[in-house]
Design a binder for these strands. Structure first.
Lengths: 326, 326
DNA sequence: AGCCTGTGCACCGTGAAAGCG
DNA sequence: CCGCTTTCACGGTGCACAGGC
């Protein structure tokens, strides 16, 4: 009924607890015969080592924790899954938590931390990175601390591509729809958009073209309906694909055709952007590469280096038919 | 540098370790003055209790683990998020893991288990449920064991609704596309489809209308293109929404119009099904209700009852324009 | 002596029971 | 009875060492 412990196995096998521990850890300190006997008993009793005890003793858990703002949407889930797959190959267990960084990260239950799209004041992140002396990777923040690396998207380049595309579009009356204002990526994209708007449009009215869409397709559906009815804008730069879909929805509800009557571009290349009609022009970051880089940095930090490092991923433009080119 | 422990606090406060422990747990065993002093020191030193030690001692962690097959797609993420939100309100920490059920679930690090879309032979699940003496909820399986509940979708009803809808459609040449064959929901839906196909179509050729789509839109895109070119089928019943989108994609690539030239129905009411054009007729299970029921059962089991229980959620038909009715 | 196999014990941080002035 | 301390166990690890050949 109760969990089997080393002690019980030791009693049955008529050896000491230490011997059982050695045997199950395949230490050479135990003879083959005894080892086999002990292992058999352990298997029979369905023995599972108590991780709490193990961690308490060893301070090393092979457990890595990933923090996301939410499991919802087409982005976070994909990215965590990629990371999970790589860690699994290396016999590491990835745990995901959503919301705030839980206390157990600060204890010895977890070996390291991966932060994706955490939305909070950077001060807290900074504090955590600073006094958490474990490998920590930020994927959507830039925070310099020991044992910390940042593996982030080069958002400026992505925005540049999108502006270039839209500048070749027949539709030029541009509307920029941002995501959650607390999101690092949204902030970076906004900053880059400001820069390239000026460069491409030579106007100072950037702010009047910007709307907050909160990464939510329903919000952009409402916005889109309004603007399309009034003919305010005919080109939409959305900071993620989901919001772009909201514009699609608005367009079709008003019998307008994306790629004909209006242009739409998105961000992230989520799977829907290829499935939807017309295909959505979007910015892609290879999630597998991203995940590999994250895990790579993780083990680099773990093994020795602890200097802060920042790695930028170069995004790629995926051209589809949501933009009618001149 | 190193984590502060009760011991260090005790030394500074010039009291025993036990007193510190009592003080921080607000026990009445300690005088107010000492308590305040100790708390201040703990705060200053940034004390965080070591969960491994706590669990080892108390066998109770306030951590619940959710297992999913993958974080990807529009379904699992939504559901986990709902569950997470409810647990968070109750000061429980939900951890998510993807892949197989990790060892730490079997140790005392985790209080209970929630299994969603785990794909494996049921034998393993049964074994786990049987000798894991913690609250366990299966959301996509029916497994009877102590301290175990099943909170599942009534798939038969959902399939029935979809057949009723398609039987009123102008398109009647029906193609049934299943998901992953290891998925419980896919299996249940297939079983129900077999039943209702016979009822509505009075034919014995069910199996020749069934194709495996693996829950993947690209697979159904290929299937859809093939069938639509050959005019094999003009009504598609997909076991989830993503696959239905693949049919949408195939249709538009062949200049056919969903809801006009063909009918499509899906399952799950993921957010895309309302955003896409035409809207996708689909089966909805209220995820919030589902999550509430799961958490409810969790605490019921935890507090006392340990008899197996099965709760079925009644799904709802969401009618949109992907089916042209007579 | 040296190798092989196995044991005793201190220790991680916590919390509960019992003890004590 | 209050306020605090001592002691112990939770489960597992690995060092230092013991005893036999």
């Amino acid at each position: 009924m109760k969990k089997t412990s080393l002690k019980q196995i030791a009693e049955i096998a008529q050896v000491s607890v230490a011997t059982v521990s050695y045997a199950l850890n395949d230490s050479s300190q135990v003879g083959e015969v005894t080892k086999a006997k002990i292992k058999k008993i352990a298997a029979d009793l369905n023995y599972v080592p108590n991780l709490s005890a193990q961690n308490l003793r060893t301070n090393d858990s092979n457990i890595v924790c990933a923090v996301v703002n939410t499991y919802q949407g087409n982005f976070n889930g994909d990215v965590i899954q990629e990371i999970q797959d790589i860690f699994a190959q290396k016999k590491y267990q990835l745990l995901a938590v959503s919301g705030s960084i839980p206390n157990f990260v600060k204890t010895d239950m977890v070996d390291g931390l991966i932060v994706l799209n955490y939305r909070s004041d950077e001060a807290e992140l900074r504090r955590i990175a600073y006094d958490l002396h474990k490998p920590t990777i930020f994927m959507t923040n830039e925070i310099a601390a020991k044992k910390t690396a940042n593996v982030i998207i080069n958002n400026e380049l992505g925005i540049k591509y999108l502006f270039e595309t839209l500048s070749k579009s027949v539709h030029r009356n541009i509307c920029i729809i941002t995501g959650d204002n607390n999101s690092y990526n949204s902030q970076q994209r906004l900053k880059a958009a400001r820069k390239y708007y000026k460069k491409f449009y030579k106007h100072d009215d950037f702010d009047s073209h910007v709307y907050s869409g909160d990464f939510d397709p329903n919000t952009t559906y409402q916005l889109g309906r309004h603007f399309l009815e009034q003919n305010t804008y005919n080109a939409y730069l959305c900071f993620n694909d989901d919001m772009a879909l909201g514009i699609y929805h608005a367009a079709s509800s008003l019998n307008k055709t994306v790629g004909e009557d209006l242009s739409v571009v998105g961000f992230d290349d989520s799977y829907v952007s290829s499935v939807v009609s017309p295909g959505l022009t979007t910015i892609k970051v290879n999630k597998k590469t991203w995940a590999e880089e994250v895990v790579d940095q993780y083990f680099k930090i773990k093994s020795n280096s602890n200097y802060p490092e920042t790695i930028e991923l170069i995004p790629e433009l995926i051209l589809r038919d949501s933009v009618k080119l001149k």
